[in-house]
């Protein structure tokens, strides 16, 4: 499956070709769903996927053609749908704050935590990240995007993606460590 196929399926789906739509949907709905679930909440993810594909199907004309990959185009629309649904634009466009990079002073504790923690704990930690950092994790760590692709979706330079991802990882480590301390404190 390549970009050519994606573009052909997209064109076919817009022209009412059900088979082309099926292929396009099967190829990319999971990525769109995952993005929607992390960025807009899992309860709204179905609606975001539906709105995203509806928008894609109904858009016609030269200015509605994807300029990059079709998956970037889809995630870009999903991003817009999520922002519109939740009207959290301010949170999404927040200026990079002066969060310190969190260097673990207790790597061994963190290590134990990360090994022991369930996937659900990591997911919960990801969900508590601020949107701009969460987005970097969702696209680059959990999704299939490279820095350039993520930059296209996030509409920012590649350097910003790197910096957000780095901060996101630091924040994530910090959150997991806090969770460990809390768990350790509760233990008898």
């Amino acid at each position: 499956m390549g970009e050519m196929d994606d573009a052909r399926w997209l064109e076919g789906a817009r022209n009412g070709d059900e088979q082309a739509f099926s292929r396009l949907f099967a190829a990319h709905q999971r990525q769109v769903f995952r993005y929607a679930a992390y960025m807009g909440g899992v309860e709204a993810a179905d609606d975001v996927v539906q709105d995203t594909f509806l928008a894609v199907l109904r858009q016609r004309g030269r200015r509605d053609q994807p300029t990059g990959s079709v998956v970037s185009y889809l995630i870009g629309i999903a991003r817009h749908v999520v922002m519109k649904r939740h009207e959290r634009t301010a949170g999404w466009t927040l200026v990079e704050d002066d969060l310190e990079r969190s260097e673990s002073r207790e790597p061994s504790v963190l290590d134990r935590l990360l090994v022991a923690e369930s996937v659900e704990s990591v997911r919960a930690a990801v969900l508590t990240l601020p949107p701009v950092y969460r987005e970097a994790i969702v696209l680059c760590e959990l999704g299939e995007f490279d820095y350039a692709g993520a930059a296209a979706v996030m509409q920012c330079p590649i350097g910003t993606v790197r910096s957000r991802l780095s901060r996101a990882r630091a924040l994530l480590a910090e959150k997991l460590m806090v969770a460990l301390r809390a768990t350790a404190g509760e233990r008898p």
């Binding site: 993810a45 290590d111 959990l142």
Partner: peptide, 22 residues
């Protein structure tokens, strides 16, 4: 090592998310 473990944890999360679908 912490970074590696964090990457591992994220990879596990990614694998777990593979079942996510509309």
């Amino acid at each position: 090592q912490s970074n590696d473990h964090l990457s591992d944890a994220l990879r596990q999360l990614k694998d777990d998310d593979a079942s996510m679908a509309a």
